[in-house]
Design a binder for these strands. Structure first.
Lengths: 382, 382
DNA sequence: GGTTTTTTTGCACCCGCGTGCAAAACGGAC
DNA sequence: GTCCGTTTTGCACGCGGGTGCAAAAAAACC
């Protein structure tokens, strides 16, 4: 595709592009983009050029009259390079439409600037929000995000292997069911350099878990439920993975028994999926005498809460919160829809994602990675 | 990290791993995995080993007593290699826990086996479904998916540049607002080798668009609406991008006027977002005299339809479908929720994703990439 | 067994860039 | 102009594996 660094080739490229140089603003926009990683009108820049790939640092070096390594430095911040040659290089690069090849860079430096994001659960709309934040914020810090689908639990290790083949800098788990075995596998094999559990507590050693302070959050919810005078809560729990340690559930139950001197009940839905929650709630409430019914369903997250509301409203024909109230957790998309008006707790995902970027950079600013404070959002569902 | 192919090093690795060999089933599982790309219990395999990275083909070659290139062939299907040496190599590889490095392979072969998936819209739950299918199916065909967030339109070109830096084999657009400029930029600059618009029609030349037969689909919806006897439809349109060519909208309007000898009305929501649709419907219907009200809202997709239903039900206090009916398109998550019970059209995304894989492999089996047939799903909303 | 055909194997060279170090250029003081 | 300290620049070598071809080995044939 490209004859390497051959002088005629370079000359050819040069001829090809010099026609564009006369048009004003061309360089500026390119340089601006390179320097700031902001887009002004690169769009225009790109459409004017016909070959952007297969231009290597050698080509640029030849055109700029410097060595390849100087070209290199021009694109690397904090590199020792004189302003003069930096300008020369960037000019040449702009002329040729050169951009460093991240694949080669990754191979050479053993840093792929890629992370893989493992998700095992696409039925929870909250994941959409997490993906939006994570991809956006990680990219501003230079990381690409490989989305890995592990809906089958078996796939998870497979995916991890794949991740290791791609030399990702880290694997981020935002799933709900990952168990010890997977974590151990990933870490034991050093398939990934860093294993990060995001938005969820993990007690696994060597795993970095970034999440909000579930205890404080759940206590706020409990206090709210108590303050509103509810008497018979039923906690709807999600997947029972050992590493998550049932943190939200335990916290709620403990708080309740401390405050009310009586035990609160709970039931395990097992999946963070509105439909499953719907059916579970139908079954559980259906099996109960009316006088044993809860007056509030405290859900481990919004996905469950939504299913619960649907069940209360459509299966039993009752009113939320009048007959049975519901709380959630996450402030997922649709939580604010008029169908749900869910009282819930918002995790500060953006902050958490920023922290994640710091962790990836190796600067772990704080040890308190699981104590982000979010906010209780009170709507009409409870 | 690793001394390259040095004999003492290899011996060291060998020592390190031979202890595991005695345990039964170890090889088998590894070999099985390598050959079938299926996971049996690689999990266990991985956790037993402590170094999986930084084992190169050279190490394996040394251990197996063959050349590095033979090792290579053992991992490449359809390669010419004798069964005997393949076994030798795979045994050695299993012993060392070797896996080929995709980064290096990508650099050498100029195929990264990576695609980037550009999304500009995280508020439509349908995207969740598309991501699930695409990532899962592409992975079975060997591609990793880089998720690129382009919520800011400006970011799209930036993202495309980034994609080119990563040498992705293709960029897949599943956004809603990508306009000509971006497509042209991407193609003009050859920033990406292939530009694929998925789940949506694109008239742009050089762009491969894979989608269902919108015309046939929308006609089915129109016929259903007519058959049910609705008289005053209002079409709720999404973003007005030139390349999408308003296919669904035009189809519906045309069908209606052909069948009913009168024009149907439409209004432009502009975004595929339930909230925006909610407000838009409130505004539009609010400005109309009751006698001019539509009896059915035909929506360009489910995201809009959901917002429309919410507006009808909660803002105007009316019943769906009794007062105003609603149809959608996509059969997105939540379309079957009791809140919506949306009559909609399901696109065959799995089939489409398989077709995408074929396109990536360069075998474009059919020219009819925009004529997948889905199915009309009739629920209670219309 | 000798010869031809086919399969299998080995190898030089390349992919595009990073790293650490040594040489060169620069700049200021005398 | 010389000397010395400080930038700045150039370079050999490496990252791990892919490609096409030629040599070697195996198989087929007479």
């Amino acid at each position: 595709m490209r004859k390497r660094g051959s002088s005629p080739h370079t000359t050819h490229l040069r001829d090809k592009f010099t026609q564009y140089n006369r048009e004003a603003g061309f360089y500026d926009c390119y340089l601006y983009w390179v320097n700031t990683a902001q887009t002004t009108d690169i769009c225009e820049f790109m459409s004017r050029n016909t070959v952007i790939h297969s231009v290597t640092a050698d080509d640029v070096a030849a055109l700029a009259g410097v060595s390849r390594w100087t070209v290199n430095r021009a694109f690397k911040k904090d590199a020792s390079i004189s302003l003069k040659s930096k300008k020369k290089v960037l000019d040449a690069a702009a002329e040729l439409g050169y951009l460093p090849d991240l694949l080669a860079a990754g191979l050479a430096s053993d840093k792929s600037s890629l992370v893989s994001l493992l998700i095992d659960d696409f039925s929870n709309p909250y994941k959409l929000l997490m993906m939006e934040r994570l991809t956006r914020i990680l990219r501003t810090h230079g990381w690409g995000t490989i989305l890995v689908n592990t809906v089958n639990n078996d796939d998870a290790t497979d995916a991890l292997l794949n991740a290791s083949q791609r030399r990702v800098d880290a694997a981020i788990l935002i799933g709900s069911r990952y168990d010890e075995a997977i974590l151990t596998a990933a870490l034991g094999a050093r398939a990934v350099r860093k294993l990060i559990v995001f938005g969820r507590y993990s007690s696994h050693p060597d795993t970095i878990s970034i999440g909000c302070d579930d205890v404080s959050a759940m206590n706020q919810i409990a206090d709210h439920v108590i303050a509103r005078g509810y008497q018979r809560p039923l906690f709807l729990a999600g997947p029972q993975t050992p590493s998550a340690h049932l943190l939200r559930q335990d916290t709620f139950l403990k708080r309740w028994s401390n405050q009310k001197q009586e035990k609160a009940d709970y039931t395990t839905v097992g999946v963070y999926d509105p439909k499953a929650a719907y059916e579970h709630v139908c079954r559980v409430l259906g099996a109960l005498n009316k006088n044993q019914w809860p007056d509030i369903l405290v859900s481990e997250n919004d996905a469950i809460a939504m299913g619960a509301i649907d069940a209360v409203r459509y299966h039993f024909g009752l009113k939320v919160p009048h007959d049975i109230a519901v709380t959630g957790f996450d402030n997922a998309p649709f939580a604010d829809s008029p169908n749900y008006e869910l009282t819930t707790y918002r995790q500060p995902i953006s902050e958490m994602a920023e922290q994640l970027a710091e962790v990836l950079k190796g600067r772990q600013l704080t040890q308190k990675l699981n104590h982000f404070k979010g906010e209780l959002i009170i709507r009409t569902s409870a």
